[in-house]
Nucleic acid binder design. Sequence first.
DNA 1: AACCTGACTTCGG
DNA 2: TCCGAAGCCAGGT
Length: 107
Amino acid sequence: MTLNIIKIIQNIPKGKVLTYGRIAKLAGNPRAARQVAWTLNSSTEKYALPWHRVINSQGLIALNSEEGRNQQKFLLMKEGIEFVGEFEIDLSKYLWKINSIEEIGNE
DNA sequence: AACCTGACTTCGG
DNA sequence: TCCGAAGCCAGGT
């Protein structure tokens, strides 16, 4: 479960993003969005996860601290993602299109 | 060891 | 539509 979450995040392509809900759904539990957030906190360093490619369902950066938000925005812009608001991006453009975790299996 | 908390979402009223 | 409550689960208190 947790490993699925990590696996998914690790495979998000550069320049694309995924929402907590999507990840949770792909990992098996549509309601485990919170766990996704928690996993990012605890495993980002261990697995070198591209944490900045994970945002909330509204296309907004979900961090609490302002420094964190700026950091994430900076990293995303560096990958070519444009912001439509201060901390908002167009999901229809940048959301990673993946239907199931099976699509990652060929790793 | 029980209880609280969190980078969230979804569901029911 | 909008708001409160539940669901998920591991680490910290």
